[in-house]
């Protein structure tokens, strides 16, 4: 293209940022409050690679693959810094936090952007209920709303009170009936497994009522949704996992971290089996992470929190584009 033709082609392009100057300032101020919070709490800020040889196996997440360049092997952009941060914990780092960009392919919408900012932190020696208290304190500080109320509700109580069903006991057929009964459109055409139906009911009928004028922590999930959380055994085992909702929006996900290497390996294998059976990309598992677990990960609680969404809530932004300088369509 000639320079003149290039200039003509560039003339009409939307080069300006989506975020206003005030929004950029709000983001910077929020980040400063978060860093001050952790400095006061004695939590160390760390950085780990965005580009990894391995990828997350979780079937609900799609890693972006990076093609090999010259000299250095390619790999995958991380979907969260979890594996690398746990290697630091296993090496004796003590409490750590990280603010970084993470990447998730196929996620775009009012509340989703394939590249987003995540705050992730770990508390060795803590249990997840204590970490919930710290998440509440951090969010109050970040939003500059020190009096914001906090509620805790178990996953089971949420479904029982909101829909009259027990997510551990109810059959798949009854979950489908429930979805139809509460008026979710197009249920006839949906083929979902048990967790899929629970996800549908949660996201379409329960989430919007959570965190209204408060911080709502949903905790103790079905073991099938443990992800990387420890499962507490018992008559009805529960995954020691929690999620934070604010104004109907999922903001954070935390675990009592699984420290059992054999169990972790089995979950990776189960994920990969699911991927194979469902035609998803097979990805290399993080063997360095497994080696760190075998060496010994201290009992820890950890959590990841979406900073773009937190900023949306802080500023009342109508969609995620409003808090980003340049959304992916014009990045």
């Amino acid at each position: 293209m000639s320079p003149a033709a290039r200039d003509t082609a560039a003339a009409g392009l939307p080069w300006r940022p989506c975020a206003t100057r005030e929004m950029l300032e709000a983001r910077a101020a929020m980040l400063a409050r978060i860093r001050a919070f952790f400095a006061a709490a004695g939590v160390l800020e760390v950085e780990t690679p965005l580009l990894s040889r391995a990828a997350v196996t979780d079937p609900a997440l799609t890693s972006l693959a990076v093609r090999p360049g010259t000299g250095v092997a390619g790999g995958y952009l991380h979907t969260s810094p979890e594996f690398a941060m746990k290697r630091l914990l296993a090496a004796g780092s003590g409490p750590i936090y990280q603010i970084c960009k993470v990447f998730r392919d196929d996620e775009r919408g009012r509340w989703h952007h394939p590249e987003f900012s995540l705050l992730e932190w770990y508390r060795p020696g803590w249990d997840y209920q204590r970490l919930i208290d710290e998440v509440a304190a951090l969010v109050r500080a970040a939003l500059d709303r020190p009096a914001l109320a906090v509620e805790r509700v178990s996953y089971r109580a949420l479904f029982r009170d909101g829909l009259g069903i027990d997510p551990w006991e109810t059959s798949v057929a009854a979950l489908r009936d429930c979805a139809r009964r509460v008026g979710i459109g197009g249920v006839e055409g949906l083929e979902l497994d048990r967790d899929g139906w629970l996800d549908l009911l949660l996201s379409h009928r329960l989430e919007s009522g959570l965190g209204r004028g408060r911080l709502s922590f949903v905790h103790d999930y079905p073991p099938s949704q443990a992800a990387l959380a420890r499962v507490r055994p018992g008559a009805a085992p529960v995954a020691e996992r929690f999620e934070l909702y604010v104004e109907g929006v999922e903001l954070a996900n935390g675990f009592q971290e699984l420290t059992d290497a054999a169990e972790q390996r089995a979950r990776f294998d189960a994920d990969l089996d699911w991927r194979r059976a469902n035609g998803q990309a097979e990805v290399p598992t993080d063997v360095h992470f497994l080696a760190a677990l075998e060496a010994g990960l201290p009992e820890s609680a950890g959590v990841a929190l979406g900073l773009d969404r937190l900023l949306m809530i802080a500023t009342g932004a109508p969609d995620i584009d409003a808090v980003l300088a340049f959304p992916v369509e014009r990045a």
Binding site: D58, G109, G196, D199, H204
Partner: peptide, 13 residues
């Protein structure tokens, strides 16, 4: 509308 829990099934409403 794209609806997706952080860990779980994604939907389009």
């Amino acid at each position: 509308e794209f609806v997706k829990p952080g860990k779980g099934q994604a939907f389009n409403r």
